[in-house]
Simulated assay, not measured.
Amino acid sequence: MSTPDTAVPDKGASTPAGSGDSLFTRLYTGTGAFGIVANRRKFYILTLVIVAVCLASILLRGFSFGIDFTGGTKLTMPAGDVDEDQVSMVVEEVVGEEPQTVQIVGAGNARIVEVETRFLTTDEIVDTKNALFEEFQPVSASGEASVEAIGDSARSESWGGQVTEKALIALAVFMVIVFGYIAFRFEWQMATAAIVALFFDVITTAGVYSLVGFEVTPATVIGLLTILGFSLYDTVIVFDKVEENTRGIANTTSRTYAEEANLGVNQTLMRSIHTTVIGILPLLALVIIAVWILGVGTLMDLALVQMVGIVTGTFSSVFLATPLLVTLKERSPEIKRQTAKVLARREKAEARA
């Protein structure tokens, strides 16, 4: 929901309108009371710190890759009253090392235990199945306790690598198309700022996964691509308002380009907040359903990466893309001349006053 345009005093960012109003009043009226562009150096520093921490974590800690990337053997059996720690101990006694993951997925009678380990030999698979059967007596589909109730499958690490390679190619193509469209629809400065914001989203989301230790699966990689669309949508909405405010600005002396851009961000700020909240709520519900009803799986992976991506996308759209746009625009001679004329007019007005 976009807010109505409201007049801003000539001093713009230095004395924002509505600065004495409450926080919610300033958010909803969009009068330019928040000096986002005026404080862009602080946001640049914050952005650099976030990127540095994320890159350091990626380089030093790395990622917790799932079996689809590392390769290995996956065993499944009906859960019943099985405890994950007990299953882990039984498997460790047979294979000589702790399994990569042990998790219970599904709900009700459909609950199963999934065990992911390194690549096991045929003899190790047989021994592990027998040990699990002796300990837990899983019941097969026929209703009888049988070792056949325990299934196994091998996962090749090349499959996860192929998914990642195709995702990176898709990401590169997406970036080129986005740059071309925004440069054609708006201008190259906006296209550059939007691409930088998208790279920030990718690095930050990947960094959060590295820091927290979330498991990276093919679903995570696919989900990472989906969040870029959300971030781009939010950025384009802000840019559209900025373009509307700055159209023909070279012929005016009421406000500078930076002040008009800051007004545009303020006028769309509440919309960005609403979009973020509305986007996160169903994802929270999806996480709850995935964990408590269906069990941890693909839905959980998709929901997690999209929740992280939506938050980072909103930050980059508001606090990075538009401030960076202003920095790029202020390098042009036309904007420099217009800014000088605005400041000169204000000095004359103050002198007369």
Results as ranks from 00 to 15, higher is better:
254 S>Y: 11
240 D>W: 06
271 R>L: 02
223 G>W: 02
198 L>H: 01
211 L>I: 14
203 I>Y: 06
252 T>D: 13
258 A>W: 11
178 V>S: 05
195 I>M: 12
256 T>S: 13
190 M>D: 12
267 Q>R: 15
219 A>V: 00
177 I>Q: 11
264 G>F: 05
209 Y>T: 07
164 T>M: 15
253 T>W: 04
188 W>R: 09
268 T>C: 14
169 I>F: 00
249 I>W: 05
222 I>Q: 07
248 G>T: 10
240 D>K: 05
158 S>F: 12
256 T>L: 13
184 F>M: 09
218 P>H: 07
276 T>L: 12
233 Y>E: 11
202 V>L: 11
247 R>Q: 14
274 H>F: 14
201 D>F: 01
224 L>D: 01
204 T>G: 08
232 L>K: 03
220 T>F: 09
243 E>K: 14
275 T>S: 15
225 L>E: 01
166 K>N: 11
183 A>Q: 03
226 T>M: 13
216 V>A: 10
218 P>G: 03
244 E>P: 07
221 V>H: 06
186 F>H: 01
247 R>W: 15
191 A>Y: 07
222 I>F: 09
269 L>D: 06
213 G>Q: 08
162 Q>K: 15
169 I>R: 00
235 T>E: 07
228 L>E: 03
200 F>N: 10
233 Y>A: 08
219 A>Q: 00
163 V>Y: 14
204 T>Q: 00
252 T>M: 14
171 L>M: 14
167 A>D: 08
244 E>K: 09
189 Q>N: 08
211 L>D: 09
219 A>M: 02
200 F>A: 13
272 S>N: 12
159 W>R: 15
230 F>T: 07
260 E>V: 13
160 G>H: 02
219 A>I: 00
271 R>A: 04
218 P>K: 08
272 S>L: 05
186 F>S: 00
185 R>E: 04
182 I>R: 01
200 F>H: 12
216 V>R: 12
215 E>F: 09
233 Y>P: 05
269 L>E: 02
253 T>H: 10
263 L>C: 09
259 E>K: 00
